[in-house]
Each structure stands twice: as structure tokens, then as C-alpha cells.
């Protein structure tokens, strides 16, 4: 039999166990990043020692990520930025999870009119890519890191509302709830024991993905100049500061902050995929 034939048959011989190793690596990367983000700035500051060192030094033992045009250490700045970017990922994911689940559950519970109104509103939100929505919201509120964070959270709430609503509806009609009712369990008790855990599972998985997207979009807003303002260290705005340098041959001021985004966003996504498989 040809190899492709085996592949089409889904032959057992060549199968790998679903890789948990990726997930462990992702947890490891995230833990190290957070630890460094907490410890490094405490020990060495946030790299904001302008003019002390020469500008645009390439990566070396002394400056692992090199220095930027103002002579600031890019490694220290990148680590200091963990505090903003990764925290933001968690904060947005959490608020989207809480707020989205509540609105979704309300929509599923409170009759048709409320449900329809909420669904039509989310429809309209979903007509925009999240980053565009976040952009117009930040631009309207004013250029600041806080507004950008709020805008990103608003942009990712409607999909969460839809997800938790559909899960709540699914579960409300599930057999065991009916069975519980018949056997005389109280509605509140039922809601807490069965409906809530199941309704929260999928939104929870989704929220790890939201963390990843939020980091990316927040960095994009800062890159566009409406999020974190320089000189505060943040990956997106650090990349923006390096644009002029990279085109003149100094790749490191933009490269390293971008790879931090890649590492943290990828970790959240891998963890999300893993949770998705585990919780099913």
C-alpha cells in the first residue's frame, strides 16, 4: 500500500500521541516570561538609563538584546514591558470572560425580546475586525494605554457573549437538567452544580485565545500610536520606535520586542488549544 493510502485510511502505525509537550513548553515560556518581568526590573531597573550607554549597540553579552537609539537597554525594556503586555492579556481575558459570560447568560435566560436585542447588537459588533473596532474606540476616547486596553476588551466581548449564550442554551435544554428538575432538585442548586461549570468551560478556553489576540491588538494599537505612549516600555511601541533603525540596518530594536509578542501570544494560543482538547 502506498503511504498516502495509509494516510487516507488513518492507519495506526504512524500516529503520534496528541502533543502535550507543546503545552508544557508554552506554560514554561509564559512562567519564565512572567518571572523575568517581575524580577529583572526589580534588580536592574527598566532600562531607562538614556545616554549612559552608546546608542544602537548590537546584541552583546552586556546587552543581550542590544541598545536602542537612545542607548537604552532593549532587554531590560522588553522585560519591563512584560508587566504591561502580559498583564494586559490576562486582564482583558478575565474581563471579557466575566462580562461576556454574564451578558450571554442573561441573554439566554431573559426571554426572547432581550435575547433578540442583545444578539442584534452583537451582530453589528461582529461586522468589524476587532482591531478596527478597538482603533475607532481608542481614537474617540483619546490616545492612552488605559483607553486602548478598554477598547480591546470591548472589541472581544461580543463573540464571548455569543459563545456563552449558545452554551447556556445548549445546557439549559440538556437532559440532566430536566432529570434534576424531575427528581426535585432546586433550580438554584442545579444552576450552580451543572449549568455553570459546563457553561463556563468553553468560554474559559476561548478566553485564553482572547488573551493572545489582546496582546497582539494592544501592541498594534501602541504601534499605531494610540496605545501606550513612549517612553513607557511596551512591545508594540518599542517596535514602532525601531522602524527607522531597522530600515537603516539595525534590526534588534524592533526584532526582540516582536519576538516577545510572538512568544507570549503563541503560548496563550497553545495553552488554549490544549485546554480545548483536555476539557472536551
Amino acid at each position: 500500500m502506498t503511504p498516502i493510502d495509509n494516510a487516507l485510511r488513518g492507519n495506526v502505525a504512524g500516529r503520534m500521541r496528541p502533543g502535550d509537550s507543546f503545552a508544557y513548553a508554552a506554560f514554561g515560556v509564559l512562567a519564565v516570561l512572567i518571572a523575568m518581568g517581575v524580577v529583572v526590573p526589580l534588580l536592574y531597573g527598566d532600562g531607562d538609563v538614556a545616554m549612559k550607554t552608546q546608542g544602537l549597540l548590537p546584541p552583546s553579552w552586556e546587552h543581550p538584546f542590544g541598545t536602542d537609539r537612545y542607548g537604552r537597554d532593549i532587554f531590560l525594556r522588553s522585560m519591563a514591558a512584560v508587566r504591561i503586555d502580559v498583564t494586559l492579556g490576562f486582564a482583558v481575558a478575565l474581563s471579557v470572560l466575566v462580562f461576556g459570560s454574564i451578558v450571554g447568560a442573561l441573554s439566554a435566560t431573559f426571554g426572547r425580546t432581550v435575547d433578540m436585542v442583545i444578539m442584534r447588537i452583537t451582530d453589528v459588533f461582529l461586522a468589524f475586525p476587532a482591531v478596527v473596532l478597538a482603533l475607532i474606540i481608542t481614537a474617540s476616547l483619546g490616545k492612552s494605554a488605559w483607553f486602548a486596553a478598554i477598547a480591546v476588551a470591548i472589541a472581544y466581548t461580543p463573540p464571548m457573549v455569543r459563545l456563552s449564550r449558545s452554551k447556556a442554551l445548549e445546557i439549559r435544554s440538556a437532559d440532566y437538567v430536566a432529570a434534576g428538575r424531575l427528581s426535585g432538585a432546586s433550580t438554584v442548586g442545579l444552576a450552580f452544580r451543572h449549568v455553570l461549570p459546563n457553561a463556563v468551560k468553553y468560554p474559559f478556553v476561548q478566553s485564553t485565545l482572547v488573551a493572545s489576540w489582546a496582546i497582539l491588538d494592544f501592541a498594534a494599537l501602541s504601534f499605531l500610536g494610540v496605545g501606550v505612549q513612549p517612553p513607557t516600555p511596551e512591545w508594540g511601541s518599542m517596535i514602532a520606535e525601531g522602524v527607522g533603525d531597522i530600515l537603516l540596518g539595525s534590526w534588534w530594536p524592533s526584532f526582540f520586542p516582536g519576538s516577545m509578542i510572538l512568544l507570549s501570544a503563541a503560548s496563550f494560543q497553545i495553552i488554549g488549544d490544549w485546554l480545548d482538547r483536555r476539557l472536551r
Partner: peptide
């Protein structure tokens, strides 16, 4: 007929 699903042989 060699039609066993994936994971069975």
C-alpha cells in the same frame, strides 16, 4: 476490506 477506523487494526 481493510476499512477499520483510525486507531483500530
Amino acid at each position: 476490506l481493510g476499512l477499520l477506523p483510525a486507531g483500530v487494526s
